[in-house]
Amino acid sequence: MKADESPSLFISQKDGAVYVVLSNLGNQSIKVRRDYLLDRLFGNLLFDIRRKGKTFPETAHINPEMPTESTYLVLAPGQIGGHVVDQWLIKAAYSLSSGCYTVSAVYRDSMAKDFSAFDGELRSNSIELCFKDANM
């Protein structure tokens, strides 16, 4: 696929929810994960979180089930797939304190080759997520 015909990843947020959308902009079908797991070992969705030059690595480990063929779906040209993540799950998974962060999504499936799926890495646009202390 040409660079302008590859899949793309986009995130947005509204009312405490972060929307992650994967679009197939190419002219061929692609196979992608349907579960969008936040897990550093078997998951396929990570967040790149930064604040004042500091990067925040994922600290949680969710222990998901291993993917199977049914974990995947085929996106035809022009189709989209996506997932909604509660921003508080992101806060907990990355041990974030109150304040504002620059957040982008990363789709990377370490199990893709086992299922003849899309095995590239996609990075989304960036958004700002802000968290307040519960006492404020």
Score class of each variant (00 low, 15 high):
Val74Asp: 01
Ala105Tyr: 00
Tyr19Thr: 10
Thr71Leu: 01
Val85Ala: 11
Asp109Val: 08
Lys113Asn: 14
Ile80Ala: 09
Ser126Arg: 12
Ser29Lys: 11
His83Cys: 09
Leu75Gln: 01
Asp4Leu: 15
Met1Ser: 10
Gly82Glu: 01
Ser124Phe: 00
Glu69Gly: 09
Val20Pro: 09
Ile11Lys: 04
Asp133Thr: 00
Thr55Asn: 11
Lys132Val: 00
Gly78Ala: 08
Gly81Leu: 02
Gln28Ser: 13
Leu38Trp: 05
Ser97Trp: 13
Pro67Ala: 04
Ser110Asn: 15
Gly82Leu: 01
Val84Gln: 13
Ser104Asn: 10
Gly43Val: 07
Val84Ser: 13
Gly43Ile: 05
Leu129Ile: 10
Lys14Arg: 05
Cys100Ile: 01
Glu128Gln: 13
Tyr107Phe: 03
Asp114Glu: 14
Asn125Ile: 02
Phe56Ile: 08
Cys100Asn: 03
Arg50Asn: 12
Lys91Pro: 05
Arg40Tyr: 06
Met1Tyr: 10
Val74Gln: 02
Gly81Asp: 12
Lys132Pro: 00
Tyr107Asn: 05
Thr102Phe: 07
Gly16Val: 02
Lys91Tyr: 03
Leu89Asp: 13
Ala117Tyr: 05
Ile90Val: 11
Gly78Tyr: 09
Ile49Ser: 00
Lys132His: 02
Ser23Arg: 14
Lys31Arg: 15
Val84Lys: 14
Lys31Gln: 12
Asp35Thr: 09
Lys113Pro: 11
Met111Tyr: 13
Leu37Asp: 04
Phe42Tyr: 13
Ala112Lys: 00
Ile127Arg: 03
Tyr94Leu: 02
Ser95Phe: 11
Glu128Trp: 07
Met136Asn: 12
Ser124Asn: 09
Gly82Tyr: 01
Lys31Asn: 09
Pro64Thr: 06
Lys113Thr: 11
Thr59Val: 12
Asp35Glu: 15
Tyr72Glu: 10
Val21Ile: 07
Ser29Asp: 07
Pro67Ile: 06
Asn125Gln: 06
His83Thr: 01
Ala117Leu: 05
Trp88Leu: 15
Val85Pro: 03
Val84Ala: 11
Gly16His: 00
Thr71Ile: 01
Ser6Ile: 05
Tyr72Gly: 12
Gly120Val: 10
Asp109Asn: 15
Glu58Cys: 09
Ile62Asp: 11
Ala17Thr: 07
Val103Phe: 00
